[in-house]
Design a protein around this nucleic acid. Structure first.
Length: 173
DNA sequence: AGCAAGATCGGT
DNA sequence: CCGATCTTGCTG
């Protein structure tokens, strides 16, 4: 079942861990792709020196100020599209970066495999016909670590444990 | 108007 | 560790 708007309108620190193990669905012209969300990072509002929202509202991040459930896509290093999900209430910029899904380790690989580009900017996950997230009963075990690639943010932001990673299933024999 | 740096990735 | 590649937001 597709997650609705109220799921995303909560604070990013609740939404980010809750997205783990959920199914990211991408519908193209001729196929339906399902990916289990495996690793994400939470980015906060203007106070978070690692967040794009730290500059206030700009042309790039304006969708972060909308209500939760919108897609925030941007280009990094001139090459890779980053897929983010806006969370929280309108006027409270927050977003979750989708860093990895099962079988695709890395945010740039995720967007490449799913064919995500700038045209998805502002897409509403609660209503979109080409991308959404579906609920799953089982919740994976999660560990938290500092976010990746944000040394510039300084303390305490670069140390906040806002990267959520699914613990791989224990291999027994 | 110009510039430094970036929520990355793949190859040395 | 380094280069690719180009948008962004800041500075002047």
């Amino acid at each position: 079942m597709r997650l609705n708007s109220s799921f995303y309108k909560r604070d990013v620190l609740f939404v980010a861990p809750d997205l783990m193990g959920k199914t990211l669905v991408r519908k193209t012209n001729d196929e339906l792709l399902f990916y289990t969300i495996y690793e994400v990072e939470a980015y906060g509002g203007v106070e978070d020196e690692a967040s794009h929202a730290r500059f206030g509202k700009t042309s790039r991040n304006s969708i972060m100020f909308a209500q939760g459930g919108m897609v925030y896509v941007y280009l990094i290093y001139g090459m890779y599209w980053m897929l983010n999900i806006v969370t929280g209430a309108e006027g409270h910029p927050q977003a979750v970066l989708i860093r990895g899904v099962k079988g695709l380790d890395g945010p740039g690989k995720v967007t490449k495999a799913l064919g995500i580009d700038k045209s998805f900017y502002g897409e509403d996950l609660a209503n979109s016909k080409r991308i959404w997230v579906e609920n799953q009963e089982t919740k994976p075990e999660i560990i938290q670590k500092p976010r990746h690639g944000i040394e510039y943010a300084g303390e305490p932001w670069k140390s906040m444990p806002w990267r959520y990673i699914t613990v791989p299933p224990f291999q027994s024999f």
